[in-house]
Design a protein around this nucleic acid. Structure first.
Lengths: 164, 164
DNA sequence: CTAAACGTGTTGAGAGCTCAACTATTCCCG
DNA sequence: CGGGAATAGTTGAGCTCTCAACACGTTTAG
């Protein structure tokens, strides 16, 4: 291992501020959804991705990657969503290993009911706080990070993790 | 309730990209710490804040607010850290309700051992990916969000939550 | 001075997430 | 074709987090 490239004072500040901002922000989003719709944000995302898919149906693995979930997490989540009746599982006709997850009418209704409160929270806690210029910057920064992080695997490799 | 102010296409993109970036990034940070030091990031932060305090000691409530933790979470966390021997609890001399949390020598050593790997992850996954200009923007954006979010309470009010 | 309100910290139940192990199916290559 | 490797998804244990309820000390107002 080489010498550690420590953070200088400026970087420290940036890092802590970023940490604080994201924690506060996502806490609010999670909480709003939990209070307002009885749904954790991860579940809301799953329902959203399903709602946008053709036939409101996706393979589990597709759903896992688009909703940034591990397979395991998704599996647990869908089980719970199935118990609640928002999602239905069906075997995949073309691949006997596969499973399809389908958003039910009840699930869609639930999502529609939850959406306004959620969007309002995102708008008021994020967009309303930033200037248009800052919004553009945030977009660029996020794109850069996403691009970099999605194709640089952690360590050698991780077993049951993320995407296909 | 008023009409929902939905997100337009541009905002949608920004929002999703932000979501993706932060999820990927914090997943990596968490995982690096978990693998490299056997510590969740929240615990690392607690140890860090203690290490910076006078006598490496803080009141539980102080520690909760500086580490962005709820009281309850902190209480559980400190219990676990105490079992591991990284932290010690002592009654507060000036307020019989209070508790002081103190970082032990072992805890400090653990933190020192964990730090290089953690910093390297933050640097390579965050700072190395952004231009100096983007780093400045990120700082401004984060400051704006933090400022806004820390003094606008959620809903009417929330019981057992965050800071003093 | 006392009673109510408030502040500080803890606890236990319930939920979600991670990790590792496992089953079942499909792919690939000799 | 046959067998090993890769892929799809699930499961259960263990851990952390949240929420609500609680216990106890402190402050404040009548």
């Amino acid at each position: 291992m080489n010498e550690t490239r420590w953070l200088d004072a400026d970087e420290q500040q940036t890092w802590r501020s970023f940490l604080t901002a994201t924690r506060l922000f996502f806490d609010r989003v999670d909480r709003q959804l939990q209070n307002g719709a009885g749904l954790p944000h991860a579940y809301y995302e799953i329902l959203t991705r399903l709602s946008e898919a053709p036939d409101r149906t996706l393979r589990m693995s597709q759903l896992a990657s688009t909703s940034l979930s591990s397979r395991s997490r998704l599996s647990h989540a869908v089980s719970r969503l199935e118990e609640s009746g928002w999602v239905r599982r069906r075997p995949c006709p073309t691949d006997k290993r596969g499973q399809l997850a389908e958003l039910t009418a009840e699930g869609f209704a639930r999502l529609e009911a939850a959406a306004p409160g959620h969007v309002e929270e995102v708008r008021s806690s994020l967009f309303d706080v930033l200037t248009p210029e800052q919004q553009r910057s945030l977009r660029e920064i996020s794109d850069a990070l996403s691009a970099h992080l999605s194709d640089s695997p952690l360590w050698p490799a991780v077993a049951d993790r993320r995407q296909s």
